[in-house]
Amino acid sequence: MLEYLLDLAAATLRLSTPLIFAAMGGLISERSGVINIALEGKMVVGAFAAAVITLSTGSPWVGLIGGGLAGVLLAALYGVAVLPLKANQIVAGTGINMLAFGIPPFVAKILYDVTGSTPAISLAERFSVAPMFLAVLLPLVIWSFLSHTRGGLWLQFAGEHPAALAAAGVTVRRIRWASVLTAGFLAGVGGATLSIFLSSAYSRNMTSGRGFIALAALILGKWRPVPVLFACLFFGLADAVQMRLQGIQMDGFGKVPVQFIQILPYMITIVVLAGFVGRSRAPRALGNS
């Protein structure tokens, strides 16, 4: 039993890793006032780029950074659309997600003449545990950044009252650019952990909605780093349990429908959003740029 629980805890941590990175990216972006529904897309390109780069360099660390940078590239495109061009952030985010799904097959066809997935990465070139520890540390770093540093204060004001920040002589646009790009990096890294940590190749649809789960965790954690971390861990646990329950017969119930566990995070988010369990308040200037 203890062994089972330890096993489950480890699996939870592993499965939470991509969520935590992506959700922290979303947190940085949204706390500065920029909606980020394109976490999913950034994870997709991050996962793909990390696999490709790890394959060609043999170093997962380079791959991880590369995945992050791919997220930055995509975030830069998003930034251009929503910051200077003032596109609707939800529409542009949807566009970025679409784009992200189109990129890996397009590039994979050019690189490997296959569509959709990359060749397998050897075990030696994959991460074993490192990203997991980074993921748990990250929220603490972000928390202390937000509450103790100058940049953190600016970022929060950019999201709460941009005019006040501007009146204090800080350029809001610059803060939002920085946070959008940082969000791209973190979400890209989150995607990278999917392909070079949780599995050993990029494959089509491997994010399977994790970007949106990260968004759900962000809301559930009320845009605050440590609660968001716990929300991610919770969703990671749901995922781990779901994997273990797959195909298991339960007395009296028959097969546990996996789908019900899969949709659990989304159900919980809706219940929270509806205010049946506490309420979540978004940064005040979210979406107005």
């Binding site: 929060q156 709460e160 009252h161 204090a168």
Partner: peptide
């Protein structure tokens, strides 16, 4: 300004030092 440049959830202190911390 006529409409105050203050962010509600933050403390008075943070609002004052903003930009000159």
């Amino acid at each position: 300004h006529q409409h105050f440049m203050l962010a509600g959830p933050h403390s008075g202190l943070d609002n004052i030092i903003l930009g000159d911390e």
